[in-house]
């Protein structure tokens, strides 16, 4: 339990008669890259909203970053980072001011923001761009900055919701090296993706079908369990059993 940064049991979310998330139980271990896979409409987004403190489950219980999803959702929000493909930055402000604002939102002291910002900017190669307005940055750099602000408060878990959607093969790989880098520094990553080659980069992955977690394990374990040559094949085998048409 100590070593799990996410632990949920029988988590369920219903919208009227529709069960979006159906009794899922799983844990995410500290320091791993956890891939959260599933078809469109399988319930990934609904599950992530419960894990990030944005919505309450209908039933079930869970701890995220050491806090209870029922009673401590505000503390969860302070201790996680979140980035999606549609990230939001202040385009008229400089790189440094963006970092300052997000650090402030997380309640960090100015001196701490400055120290952490310098550390991250050096690590991600941002120092020469720190006074550039965000709107003047190329798209790849904006994405890198969005990643930086998502970890500015040194969260215990970083949630990445399809961070590489629509991104070209070279930029996708650069982004994954950023993920590896922060995981190396002790942050746990929780990632959704539709790129099955990226699933191979995860420590463990879960596959959601019709609101349930139908498979969970390391990529190698899942391939051997399903007698499949690749994670894409595992996905196909499971997706064929889906009843929901989204």
């Amino acid at each position: 339990m100590e070593d799990n940064v996410i632990q949920v049991e029988h988590l369920t979310k219903k919208f009227g008669s529709f069960t979006a998330v159906d009794d899922i139980t799983f844990e995410v271990r500290k320091g791993e890259i956890f891939g959260f896979l599933g078809a469109n409409g399988a319930g990934k987004t609904t599950a992530m909203k419960m894990l990030t403190g944005l919505s309450f489950p209908t039933s079930g219980k869970g701890m995220v970053a050491g806090y209870d999803i029922w009673t401590q959702s505000e503390l969860i929000k302070k201790n996680i980072g979140y980035m999606s493909q549609k990230f939001a930055l202040y385009s008229d402000l400089t790189v440094r001011d963006n970092i300052g604002i997000f650090g402030g939102i997380y309640g960090m002291k100015r001196a701490d923001v400055r120290r952490r910002a310098t550390e991250l900017m050096e690590r991600l190669g941002f120092m020469s761009e720190k006074d550039v307005r965000v709107k003047e940055l190329p798209q790849g750099w904006k994405q890198k900055l969005a990643f930086l602000v998502a970890v500015i408060h040194n969260p215990r878990i970083l949630f990445l919701d399809e961070p590489t959607g629509g991104v070209d093969p070279a930029a996708r790989r650069q982004f994954w090296e950023l993920i590896y880098d922060v995981v190396d520094s002790g942050i746990t990553a929780f990632v959704t993706t539709h790129y099955m080659d990226e699933a191979e980069y995860c420590s463990r992955i879960s596959m959601m079908v019709d609101g349930r977690i139908e498979a969970l394990g390391s990529p190698a374990e899942l391939k051997s369990e399903f007698g499949a040559g690749s994670i894409a094949d595992v996905f196909d085998i499971l997706a064929r059993g889906a009843k929901r048409s989204e």
Binding site: G38, N40, Q85, G165, G166, H194, F235, A239
Partner: peptide
């Protein structure tokens, strides 16, 4: 223009 961005592998 990038019609399958955000679309899962089976739907793609």
């Amino acid at each position: 223009d990038e019609p399958t961005t955000g679309v899962d592998p089976s739907s793609r």
